[in-house]
Design a protein around this nucleic acid. Structure first.
Lengths: 355, 355
DNA sequence: TTGAAAGCGCTAACAA
DNA sequence: TTGTTAGCGCTTTCAA
């Protein structure tokens, strides 16, 4: 059975299609309450459901949005960002096309064409990590960049305020009384790591603490990477060993936990740790639960969608919106151990420095 | 500047719109190579991009699919499932509308209407955990259920073979030499937990092992839940304490690790552990990396999309497809400790049973 | 207060 | 080998 059309409703109600259209779309004007009811009744009777495709062709508005992302499927961050974007889209009656390119340029090109062909009302280009990207060709100028900035500018974008986040994290440690604070950094995330490092240095200098280069170590953004980098830190002589560690992300912080445990160091009694990301199923599930800086994924997703859809007016066509990264306090940060640090239990294999 | 239409191309190339349409869609037949090139040239010149909406209205095929899910945003499982579905959709030239209902019935109803109005060619109804659901009204009968089964049947569906998965996990422990094998179960996931339990019992009985009811404990599906349940198990007298634990999921297995560590038990030397889910950022990152049963999310997502799109012919309109859950061997399963178990280090607070 | 009719951009049956 | 034209289902201008 073919779907009922507007003309079927018109015939059933004994009115014109114009009238039906007006009623179905709740257009004010004319049309008596009587006919309105008659039309609605008829629509129900014939099982009428509107056809958005025909409507879209006529109005040149499809009420759809395209969301292109590089890695949505394989990262645990995707969810919140998507949720924010989805919620905003739904609230203004839009449906979202999601395309994951997996970083493949061909797929990306095709996606842009396909989405353009589908006449989407807006487009969002999302990355799963704060990055600077080359804007692909063919994107409409109204495209909003989510969690990334286009290299040449020219588009609106929203990214986390990683500099402020780095500052916040470091401040958290300073406020707890720490002075020897390490930054467990990474080379795998250029933009974010640099910004967080800047924030770290700023907080230190503001507190009158001279940054100690030996407390700035790097590793891969995994638990393993964090573990190795933490070993470097914990092998330092007692008077130079950090009492607090700010980690580039939560996964690396997990590595710090491991390294500490293997030395019999207890968190936060002997070592305070703060992460970044507030990654679900990671941060909160550690023992003790990890204090961290939250990446505002939901809010960024929502912001991007609202701006893309014009719900939120953003004057500047070429501005980057910075979104705050709040601290999430749990139990991995405490005061530093008593001034006279207890001896660091070295492993036998380590060479002691001779006097 | 308005977008170029097919008639603009026709005018520019000095041919009819039919010719342009035929060329753009690579329809075999007629049309000389000469005109083909002329048309393509003209299309490029005027910057023509097809309009899928108009095409969809005319052909009654939109090359779009609707994917409704309950919790895509908040679970770490979503990714792989979506990726599989996406890949299959892309391969057959379809775009996917993703709607996350967050479990809200109103949102779900609206999503079904909106997707229907958009004339999607196919629909997938996905859950983030293996469940039995009441099929919402309005779903086209060709809808494919992903990771869930409709209570009354009537639709095609694909779910993990949890019974076989439970069997596989238990066998893994049996094959390593274990006889006292616990099942750390949950009450939070009715279908899956029951099926896995059946598989567990089957493997036990097949190996001639009598199931010990005290080795079947339950907890919440979190690390904390796993920890508490594991405590029950590890407090058992040495000769009744399990040497291997099959956990309902990886998160609970993490709790088992914690419980074991707190007792000075080493994994897998003193206790073998096997999880379920192969959850990214959890299973592989444990110390030691967790052996587990993988949920075939990618494959299920792909299967669902292929069936929905008719790429994969599935005769039965009302059948549930069971997908294998393979074991992922890492380092948490080993042989049981020597027959004469070393004394279980009890905590002082525990009451000893009197002889 | 209502209706007739044009037209959104495309495909495909039919004609030439 | 190519062109003419009806029509997909809807909105909206203009006329009644």
């Amino acid at each position: 059975m073919p779907r009922a059309r507007i003309s079927d409703v018109a015939a059933a109600a004994g009115v014109s299609v114009t009238t039906v259209s007006l009623v179905m779309n709740d257009v004010e004007s004319r049309i008596s309450e009587d006919t309105r009811n008659r039309v609605r009744e008829a629509a129900r009777a014939v099982g009428y459901a509107p056809n958005s495709v025909a409507r879209g062709l006529r109005t040149q508005q499809t009420r759809t949005v395209g969301l292109i992302s590089d890695q949505i499927a394989t990262t645990p961050f995707a969810g919140r960002m998507l949720a924010g974007a989805q919620d905003a889209a739904r609230e203004s009656g839009h449906l979202v096309f999601l395309v994951d390119t997996g970083g493949d340029d061909d797929i990306e090109r095709n996606a842009i064409s396909a989405l353009t062909a589908q006449q989407v009302d807006a487009m969002i280009y999302a990355c799963m990590w704060h990055r600077v990207v080359d804007a692909p060709a063919g994107l409409p100028p109204t495209t909003v960049f989510l969690d990334c900035r286009p290299a040449g500018g020219g588009f609106r974008s929203v990214v986390p305020d990683d500099r402020a986040g780095g500052y916040t994290a470091t401040r958290e440690l300073i406020d707890a009384g720490h002075r020897r604070i390490a930054y467990l950094d990474t080379d795998d995330a250029p933009i974010a790591s640099r910004l967080r490092h800047e924030g770290y240095l700023e907080a230190l200098s503001e507190a009158g603490i001279t940054a100690d280069p030996t407390l700035h170590v790097t590793g891969a953004t995994t638990a393993q990477g964090g573990r190795s980098a933490a070993d470097l830190l914990l092998d330092l002589p007692d008077d130079r060993r950090p009492t607090g560690v700010f980690c580039f992300n939560d996964r690396m912080a997990v590595g710090v936990y491991t390294a500490a445990h293997h030395r019999g160091l207890e968190i936060p009694r002997d070592l305070s740790v703060i992460g970044y990301d507030d990654q679900q199923l990671v941060a909160a599930e550690q023992d003790p639960p990890l204090t961290t800086i939250a990446l505002p994924h939901y809010d960024m997703g929502r912001w991007a969608m609202e701006v893309a859809l014009g719900v939120r007016a953003e004057g500047d066509e070429d501005a980057t919106h910075l979104m705050e990264c709040p601290v999430v306090r749990r139990d991995s940060v405490g005061p530093p151990p008593a001034q006279v640090a207890k001896p660091n239990r070295r492993r036998a294999s380590h060479t002691e420095r001779l006097p």
